[in-house]
Amino acid sequence: MTIRAVLLDKDGTLIDFDRTWAPTFHDLISEVTRSDARLMRALSESCGYDLDRCAFAPDSVVVAGSNADFTESWASILGVADADALLAYVDEALGRLSIAHVSPFDDLAESLERMARAGFLLGVATNDAEGSARAQLDALGITPRFAHVFGYDSGHGAKPGPGMVRAFCEAVRLPPSQVVMVGDSLHDMHAGRAAGARTLALTTGTIPRAALAPHADHVADSLSLGCDWIEAQATAHGKPAQAI
């Protein structure tokens, strides 16, 4: 069936993960610890962040996971009894601190305009907190492009679970077969396939093409090239994209 809606991951898909989050996490760790060098080092090591290089390890839990995946260990290191309160603080702080660093890919505006002009319904599904995601989309001036924005805390679970993809399909009243999940991680591909959606992988994140390919219907090296494939799928099924 033809593709009629596109659900996009955020980090590594719409915005450059390293350029956005590497400096943001340095700011966060400094704020949380009040610049205590020992605590900064401990928090960094616990989540796979190199404090000296201001960079994430390839297997860092932050790369594809949610904030809930590392704040429990942070609570233990900091001696914070209420891990949920710390998680709420981290969610808010990341949304606030990231605005100064949020870095969209060069082809983002053009790609979104292209998909909107073709008539595709657009949404975002991210393992970031919904509030943080909306703050970044607002800062980039692209929030109106998306009919729905889902975060790990929106009530549908985090990826690789299929909850956000299913919620988007229900919201736009389309079967999963008419929706494509676009992302740069295996979590995105697994979430899409588990929900029954099409999957488009981008090599704009940290995962190489060879690792993504077995889990995707197609792999592209940029969002704009991904648009080529999406539009080709729409027209191949007898419905020009602009008529959707």
Rank of each mutant, 00 (worst) to 15 (best):
M115P: 00
M115D: 00
A116R: 15
A118R: 14
G119E: 11
G119W: 08
F120M: 10
G123T: 13
G123D: 11
G123K: 09
V124I: 15
A125I: 14
A125Q: 13
A125E: 06
A125N: 15
T126L: 06
T126S: 12
T126W: 12
D128T: 07
D128M: 13
A129I: 12
A129R: 07
E130M: 12
E130I: 09
E130H: 06
E130F: 04
G131C: 03
R134C: 04
R134S: 02
A135H: 02
A135Y: 05
Q136H: 14
A139Q: 08
A139K: 11
A139H: 14
L140M: 13
L140Q: 04
L140K: 01
L140G: 03
G141T: 00
G141P: 03
G141N: 02
I142K: 00
R145T: 14
F146E: 06
H148G: 00
H148R: 12
H148Y: 01
V149D: 06
F150V: 02
F150H: 11
F150G: 05
G151Q: 07
G151V: 10
Y152M: 03
D153W: 05
D153C: 10
D153A: 14
S154A: 05
G155C: 01
G155K: 02
G155P: 01
G155W: 04
H156Q: 00
H156S: 00
K159C: 10
P160F: 08
P162F: 08
P162M: 07
P162S: 06
P162A: 12
M164R: 05
V165E: 01
R166L: 15
R166I: 15
R166V: 15
A167E: 09
F168G: 04
F168S: 06
C169A: 14
C169F: 08
E170T: 14
V172G: 05
V172C: 13
V172E: 07
L174N: 09
L174R: 15
L174Y: 14
P175L: 09
P175Y: 08
P176F: 08
P176M: 06
S177E: 15
M181W: 07
M181P: 05
V182R: 03
G183W: 11
G183E: 13
G183S: 12
D184Q: 09
S185L: 14
L186V: 12
